[in-house]
Computed example of a mutant assay.
Amino acid sequence: MTEPSTREEKLELGVELLAHLEREELDLADAVDRIETITTSPALTRDILDAAEKRGVVDREGALLRIRRGGTYVEYESQVAVREGEFTCRRCGASVTTGHFVKLDAGELGPFGSSCVRKVTGRESE
């Protein structure tokens, strides 16, 4: 899989990432932290949140998102690829030699370090 390059590809990846979070609730700042692994554009971030709400992926109540899903968590065994090399974590910017890449239908997201991939997917909280 290749990194999304178009605005539409990034939007789809952002909505799918929110749909796969392992949390029932997420404050807006934490949702934006995850979306920023895809884009730092405020306009696109807003569009991702709006699209997720319109598609029934999230319900927004002020600064709180409630994740609505049908049991769609990231399956670590099949949806997280681990590769060795020289990488920069997309979430925290740290140099890592083991990159974790999340494979979603809309594309691949990464690389992440081992703790950041767990935070991005919602498996581990801050």
Rank of each mutant, 00 (worst) to 15 (best):
M1Q: 08
T2H: 10
E3S: 13
P4V: 02
P4L: 01
S5A: 12
T6I: 00
R7V: 06
E8C: 00
K10Q: 14
K10W: 00
L11H: 11
L17Q: 04
L18H: 04
L18V: 01
H20F: 08
E25P: 06
D27H: 10
D27L: 04
D27E: 08
L28A: 06
L28R: 11
A29Y: 08
A31H: 05
A31T: 01
I35W: 01
E36L: 12
T37H: 08
I38E: 07
T39A: 09
S41R: 03
P42E: 05
P42R: 09
A43T: 10
A43L: 10
L44M: 06
D47P: 05
I48T: 07
D50G: 05
A51S: 08
A52I: 06
V57R: 00
V57I: 13
V57E: 01
D59E: 13
E61D: 12
A63M: 10
L64A: 13
L64R: 15
L64I: 13
R68N: 14
G70V: 12
V74F: 07
E75T: 10
Y76I: 15
E77W: 03
S78L: 08
A81K: 15
E86K: 13
T88N: 07
C89H: 00
G93T: 03
A94C: 13
A94P: 02
A94W: 11
V96P: 05
V96R: 12
T97V: 15
T97L: 11
G99I: 01
G99E: 13
G99F: 03
D105R: 15
G107R: 06
E108W: 02
G110L: 09
G110F: 00
P111W: 00
S114Y: 11
C116T: 01
V117L: 03
R118K: 15
V120G: 05
V120I: 11
T121N: 05
T121C: 04
G122M: 04
R123M: 07
R123T: 11
R123K: 11
E124Y: 09
S125W: 07
S125V: 10
